[in-house]
Design a protein around this nucleic acid. Structure first.
Lengths: 229, 229
DNA sequence: CCAAAAGTGTTTCACGTACACCCATGC
DNA sequence: GCATGGGTGTACGTGAAACACTTTTGG
């Protein structure tokens, strides 16, 4: 108890909603709590903010420590300051959401010291604290933002097929999209690079691989281009 | 120094970017600091979060205390945790933005104990702390959000003319809009109530007054309607 | 040769955009 | 009667949406 202040202070934490994309589902990465309160319950990865780090740095550090994830796309979501959201004392949390490429990161979560696991977003157990609400908010934000910002690519491997990206939008927006119209639209934006490669190990005609061209996207954005699906 | 903790804690504040709309400009409400640091500089209204109040409550309380404003439209903007943004110690702030109807609220700010004043957004002095950046972020958020959420009405009196709302969008989006097309679009949404009243005290033909119909907007939203200018 | 997904064009319709004149009112 | 803004309709072009068949590949 070495740190004293004239007025009482809330504790400050960060929590991360990490999304990944399966062949079938949108998934979220959870950790199982090994301490009270909510011991044994599943929760969002997160923890206390240190004095010498920014909020973003805290979120990245906690993600790395608790799940092994690094170099993820991270964006601040919302800060929650409900008075009794933590039964111990006043805790204000800054929530983030992260998008990762599941095929690269699937293993790491399981090998971490703490118990971490992916859950389909539509099949998540009841979570510790108010993490259900934070997850819901993150899911809504993703659904909204994916339509007018090219963040969907963060959920795919660097090289992907048009089918994969269409599937991504179908899963996140929860509706079917027309194949021809989708291809026309995404290709006409001019932000994808067509590679001289095709997918492998498929039991049918192999699809062409593409890459998202960030430089070109930025250039177009400066010229008034607006991404939209 | 009565409050002790095992680990050091950041102080937590809220800051509010309050927007109002003039006949000519988008304005922002600032207060002049009467204490160091940045004594005498203009800053966003705001202050420390108390343990017994939520973040939203803190923002509303500070607004009321420092500017006299009540019942304003308030929305969380972003949390800023840069390590040295306050020269005294680590302070994390949760930024909000508020939209008020300037014609109703113009007087109150000036009568408050602290020196508070409206500034045109494009003509704001250099602000205390990182408040310039927060203001910039709020301005961008407003510009983005006003197009797909009916928050612009918060800047107008309850009864307004079509000219006023068109002017609002022209000021915020910083471009001219076609009168006929604008009227067609906003009226076709079916979220305005045409009143049996016209504006008064104008030296030309008086324009019809309208009201925003929140109930109808909510009903339409549930049916899949999306507001967009 | 069969199964599975890749890849490809055209038509239709709705909506955004451009554009100019008469009307009502106050002074 | 004149200055000021209020109020109105149409034509055109672009882009979204609907829709089905042929090609390629692996097994």
């Amino acid at each position: 108890m070495k740190y004293s202040y004239e007025y009482p202070r809330a504790a400050l934490t960060v929590d991360c909603v990490v999304f990944g994309l399966d062949e079938d589902d949108l998934q979220v990465l959870l950790i199982q709590r090994d301490l009270p309160p909510f011991e044994g319950d599943w929760a969002l990865p997160g923890g206390f903010v240190r004095l010498e780090e920014t909020l973003d740095e805290a979120a990245l550090r906690e993600l790395s420590e608790e799940t092994g994830l690094k170099n993820v796309y991270l964006e601040q979501l919302y800060s929650v300051g409900t008075v009794n959201r933590d039964p111990r004392e006043r805790v204000v949390t800054v929530a983030y959401y992260a998008l990762v490429n599941l095929t690269d990161h699937r293993v790491q979560a399981a090998t971490d010291a703490r118990n971490a696991a992916w859950f389909a977003v539509d099949d998540v157990p009841s979570l510790a604290f108010d993490h259900d609400q934070i997850l819901k908010m993150a899911h809504e934000r993703l659904r909204g933002k994916v339509r007018y910002q090219p963040i969907g690519f963060e959920l795919l491997p660097p090289k992907f097929t048009l089918r994969q990206i269409q599937h991504l939008y179908e899963v996140i927006l929860d509706r079917q999209l027309d194949k021809r119209n989708f291809r026309k639209k995404i290709l006409s934006m001019g932000i994808l690079v067509e590679l001289d490669e095709v997918e492998t190990d498929v039991a049918h005609r192999a699809a062409r691989l593409y890459q998202f061209d960030r430089r070109k996207y930025k250039r177009l954005t400066k010229q008034g281009f607006h991404f939209e699906i």
